[in-house]
Amino acid sequence: MTQILKSIEVKYFAILREQANLSEERVEVAADCRTYGELYALLKEKHSFTLPLKMIQVAVDDRFASLDHEIRESARVVFIPPVAGG
């Protein structure tokens, strides 16, 4: 059994919100999932997201972060699909 290490909150916008059919969820992150990039890969499989990782940015606690950063306990994570403001 994998030990649960971190509990985080994930928010979705636009196409990710529709494909997950959720605007947010709480996710328990296992020890073998280290970075936000790896987390996206897991969620992509879970919700059948169509966007590849390279088209995604991540914000942690309302600031842009790197997908290579290590996941922090209690982080508020937003995966950001390509934007189209204006």
């Binding site: 636009a14 196409i15 204006g86």
Partner: peptide, 12 residues
């Protein structure tokens, strides 16, 4: 306007 279209987390 160019930077808004590029950088803001706004979806259409």
């Amino acid at each position: 306007i160019d930077q808004i279209k590029l950088r803001l987390p706004i979806w259409k």
